[in-house]
Design a protein around this nucleic acid. Structure first.
Lengths: 191, 191
DNA sequence: CCGTTCCTGAACAGATTGTTCAGGAAAGGT
DNA sequence: ACCTTTCCTGAACAATCTGTTCAGGAACGG
């Protein structure tokens, strides 16, 4: 496998492959894309593809790592109590809608979802840990899992649908669905 | 395509195919199973398989439909009258843990998850529609999506983890997390 | 017992995957 | 400008999987 950062040809080839995959995912969905598709779209030799990536999956992995770095930089702290991260989350996704739709939507892959879930779980856990109410008598991890599940499901639906909803409306749904339950679990929380 | 219910040969063939897929999924995961695998495991002719199912996917769909029917029958009303399917769901998963882990776990594949989500969405929608409170001022579909997301996330975590929790405890988490919010959305629900 | 329906299994075209290899092309350093 | 290293090419290849076809045999239900 060629050195990753050194040669300009390597950078061009890898970039072309990743660009090809994302474009094809937007057209056919992740599952339907074949390695041959990527090779043709990227306009490279067949052997070239396999010298850089073992799989269609590993192309996606690399792209996700890039996206992860980007998201980590853009992360903003919540500002109004429980689930304060939510609005910022939906707003951010709103800006990156095209890419997010491809990655998280119905035609996206499973890998993406798991990684995003992990990322969200960190945000939620920080949020809940900041509450000064009494510790709940249910496992915190389960609560985090449930909350993340809700947000992820809403994100997916939002990214897929024609979406007339604004980030604020999406956040409102999540907040009103989960807020009362969380308040009951963690003690009275004033927004 | 042969008549589904009439002939004994048809029932045997279809049952063998479904059994084969589930067994293979438990061994290799959904994605790794090929139609040829199923054919060999089920010990049937190649053409026979394609007479009954167009896809590996459709074999799975049929099996999941069976699960849906089961959950519908087992449904029990919760304290609020809402989320009555939950306990039966967790109990069933508890019994079929190996299978469910394969279905929803990391090796499960995206198709399974979407199908199960669709299945649960119907149950939740029926549940919420049965409430006599005023219509909520947020889109019902979004609420359903959020609720299903929570249950699915809890299911996945539960199936994957070492499981010290009982079905009742899992159901309790979901109920306490979502119940208050749903009550607030759909009007006061008397216990 | 008999007409209907189903199963068989081989054979087939087409796609896809992942590897190999020799020769040409581009890169980076001096 | 030169030269050595590294990369890209693209065709050829075996292997696997898919979905269809068809004629003959087997099981079914009545």
């Amino acid at each position: 496998m060629p050195d990753v950062a050194a040669d300009r040809r390597v950078r061009r080839t890898r970039a072309a492959i990743q660009r090809a995959l994302l474009a094809l995912m937007a057209e056919k969905g992740y599952e339907a894309v074949t390695a041959t598709d990527i090779i043709e779209r990227a306009d490279i030799g067949r052997s070239t593809f396999y010298t850089h990536f073992t799989d269609k999956q590993h192309v996606l992995y690399d792209s996700l790592d890039d996206l992860g770095d980007f998201l980590r930089d853009q992360r903003r702290p919540g500002h109004d109590g429980v689930l304060g991260f939510g609005l910022a989350l939906f707003e951010h996704v709103d800006e990156q809608r095209d890419l997010v739709r491809v990655l998280l939507g119905r035609r996206g892959g499973r890998v993406v979802q798991d990684r995003v879930a992990h990322l969200l779980a960190e945000l939620v856990r920080e949020d809940l840990a900041a509450l000064d109410g009494p510790a709940p008598d249910v496992p915190l991890d389960l609560v985090v899992t449930g909350v993340v599940g809700t947000y992820l499901a809403l994100l997916r639906t939002w990214a897929d649908s024609g979406t007339t909803w604004t980030p604020a409306e999406m956040d409102d749904v999540a907040r009103r669905l989960l807020g009362p339950g969380l308040a009951a679990l963690f003690g009275p929380v004033t927004a």
